[in-house]
Design a protein around this nucleic acid. Structure first.
Length: 151
DNA sequence: ATTTTCAAT
Protein backbone atom coordinates (compact mmCIF):
# COMPACT_ATOMS: atom_id res chain seq x y z
CA UNK A 1 0.00 0.00 0.00
CA UNK A 2 1.22 3.46 -0.82
CA UNK A 3 -0.08 4.87 2.47
CA UNK A 4 1.99 2.30 4.37
CA UNK A 5 5.10 3.37 2.51
CA UNK A 6 4.39 7.03 3.22
CA UNK A 7 3.73 6.33 6.91
CA UNK A 8 6.95 4.35 7.16
CA UNK A 9 8.93 7.14 5.53
CA UNK A 10 7.34 9.70 7.84
CA UNK A 11 8.09 7.58 10.91
CA UNK A 12 11.71 7.17 9.87
CA UNK A 13 11.98 10.88 9.18
CA UNK A 14 10.68 11.73 12.63
CA UNK A 15 12.88 9.23 14.48
CA UNK A 16 16.03 9.89 12.46
CA UNK A 17 19.17 10.47 14.49
CA UNK A 18 19.86 13.97 13.20
CA UNK A 19 21.67 16.70 15.05
CA UNK A 20 18.91 19.29 14.62
CA UNK A 21 15.24 18.42 14.25
CA UNK A 22 14.70 20.86 11.43
CA UNK A 23 11.30 20.70 9.82
CA UNK A 24 9.99 18.02 12.17
CA UNK A 25 8.05 20.25 14.54
CA UNK A 26 6.61 17.21 16.26
CA UNK A 27 7.54 14.62 18.81
CA UNK A 28 6.18 11.10 18.87
CA UNK A 29 5.98 8.94 21.95
CA UNK A 30 5.24 5.23 21.63
CA UNK A 31 4.85 3.53 24.98
CA UNK A 32 4.68 0.04 26.42
CA UNK A 33 3.17 -0.22 29.86
CA UNK A 34 3.75 -3.49 31.70
CA UNK A 35 1.98 -4.15 34.97
CA UNK A 36 3.78 -6.49 37.30
CA UNK A 37 2.28 -8.71 39.96
CA UNK A 38 -0.36 -11.40 40.04
CA UNK A 39 -2.27 -9.84 37.21
CA UNK A 40 0.40 -8.86 34.78
CA UNK A 41 -0.81 -6.97 31.77
CA UNK A 42 0.69 -5.05 28.90
CA UNK A 43 -0.78 -2.07 27.17
CA UNK A 44 0.65 -0.12 24.30
CA UNK A 45 -0.13 3.22 22.86
CA UNK A 46 1.08 6.24 21.06
CA UNK A 47 1.01 9.92 21.85
CA UNK A 48 2.25 13.02 20.15
CA UNK A 49 2.78 16.53 21.36
CA UNK A 50 -0.09 18.96 21.29
CA UNK A 51 2.27 21.64 20.06
CA UNK A 52 2.32 24.64 22.34
CA UNK A 53 -0.35 23.11 24.58
CA UNK A 54 1.60 20.13 25.92
CA UNK A 55 4.65 18.12 25.01
CA UNK A 56 4.22 14.40 24.38
CA UNK A 57 5.73 13.56 27.78
CA UNK A 58 3.21 15.81 29.52
CA UNK A 59 0.43 14.16 27.54
CA UNK A 60 1.58 10.82 28.98
CA UNK A 61 1.60 12.16 32.52
CA UNK A 62 -1.80 13.78 32.06
CA UNK A 63 -3.64 10.98 30.32
CA UNK A 64 -1.90 7.64 30.93
CA UNK A 65 -0.29 7.86 34.34
CA UNK A 66 -3.49 8.80 36.23
CA UNK A 67 -4.93 5.45 35.16
CA UNK A 68 -2.11 3.58 36.92
CA UNK A 69 -2.66 2.01 40.32
CA UNK A 70 -0.07 3.30 42.79
CA UNK A 71 -0.12 -0.05 44.63
CA UNK A 72 1.09 -1.91 41.54
CA UNK A 73 4.51 -1.94 39.93
CA UNK A 74 4.91 -0.77 36.37
CA UNK A 75 7.60 -1.13 33.75
CA UNK A 76 7.22 1.71 31.32
CA UNK A 77 9.11 1.97 28.05
CA UNK A 78 9.03 5.05 25.89
CA UNK A 79 10.24 5.22 22.30
CA UNK A 80 10.49 8.93 21.66
CA UNK A 81 11.58 10.66 18.49
CA UNK A 82 13.13 13.47 20.56
CA UNK A 83 14.75 13.62 23.96
CA UNK A 84 12.74 15.58 26.54
CA UNK A 85 13.10 19.33 27.01
CA UNK A 86 14.34 20.71 30.35
CA UNK A 87 10.84 21.13 31.77
CA UNK A 88 9.78 17.62 30.75
CA UNK A 89 13.04 16.07 32.00
CA UNK A 90 12.49 17.74 35.37
CA UNK A 91 8.91 16.46 35.43
CA UNK A 92 10.16 12.94 34.69
CA UNK A 93 12.72 13.23 37.49
CA UNK A 94 10.07 14.37 39.97
CA UNK A 95 7.60 11.70 38.91
CA UNK A 96 10.16 8.91 39.31
CA UNK A 97 11.23 10.19 42.71
CA UNK A 98 7.64 10.46 43.85
CA UNK A 99 6.44 7.12 42.44
CA UNK A 100 8.81 4.35 43.39
CA UNK A 101 6.49 1.79 41.82
CA UNK A 102 7.45 3.07 38.37
CA UNK A 103 10.40 2.00 36.28
CA UNK A 104 10.93 4.03 33.15
CA UNK A 105 13.10 3.21 30.17
CA UNK A 106 13.43 5.87 27.49
CA UNK A 107 14.72 5.08 24.02
CA UNK A 108 15.64 8.27 22.24
CA UNK A 109 15.79 8.89 18.48
CA UNK A 110 17.54 12.23 18.58
CA UNK A 111 18.68 14.82 21.07
CA UNK A 112 16.84 18.04 21.69
CA UNK A 113 18.90 21.20 22.29
CA UNK A 114 21.89 19.23 23.36
CA UNK A 115 24.25 22.22 23.29
CA UNK A 116 22.49 23.87 26.21
CA UNK A 117 24.28 23.25 29.49
CA UNK A 118 20.92 23.38 31.28
CA UNK A 119 19.61 20.63 29.01
CA UNK A 120 22.61 18.39 29.70
CA UNK A 121 22.21 18.90 33.44
CA UNK A 122 18.50 18.06 33.29
CA UNK A 123 19.15 14.84 31.35
CA UNK A 124 21.87 13.77 33.77
CA UNK A 125 19.60 14.45 36.72
CA UNK A 126 16.79 12.53 35.05
CA UNK A 127 19.05 9.57 34.35
CA UNK A 128 20.02 9.36 38.02
CA UNK A 129 16.45 9.74 39.27
CA UNK A 130 15.29 7.31 41.89
CA UNK A 131 17.22 5.66 44.65
CA UNK A 132 20.91 5.02 43.87
CA UNK A 133 20.70 1.38 44.97
CA UNK A 134 17.77 0.68 42.68
CA UNK A 135 17.68 3.24 39.93
CA UNK A 136 14.33 3.19 38.21
CA UNK A 137 15.37 5.14 35.17
CA UNK A 138 17.25 4.07 32.05
CA UNK A 139 18.08 6.24 29.10
CA UNK A 140 19.19 4.77 25.78
CA UNK A 141 20.21 6.30 22.52
CA UNK A 142 20.38 4.63 19.15
CA UNK A 143 23.39 2.32 18.74
CA UNK A 144 24.59 4.38 15.81
CA UNK A 145 23.99 7.76 17.50
CA UNK A 146 26.41 10.23 15.97
CA UNK A 147 25.76 13.19 18.21
CA UNK A 148 25.54 11.93 21.76
CA UNK A 149 28.26 13.08 24.08
CA UNK A 150 29.02 11.18 27.28
CA UNK A 151 26.32 11.46 29.88
C1' DA B 1 26.54 21.41 2.41
C1' DT B 2 24.56 19.15 8.72
C1' DT B 3 22.52 24.17 8.45
C1' DT B 4 19.14 25.51 14.04
C1' DT B 5 14.85 22.46 17.70
C1' DC B 6 7.59 19.55 20.91
C1' DA B 7 4.46 25.53 14.64
C1' DA B 8 1.85 29.04 12.96
C1' DT B 9 -1.01 30.06 9.12
Amino acid sequence: MLSLLINTMFFKFQFRNVEYSSGRNKTFLCYVLETQGKESATSRGYLEDEHAAAHAEMAFFNTILPKCDSSLRYNITWYVSSSPCVTCADRITETLKKNKNLRLTIMVGRLFMWEEAEMQAALKKMKSAGSPEASNMSLFFLPHDQFRKDL
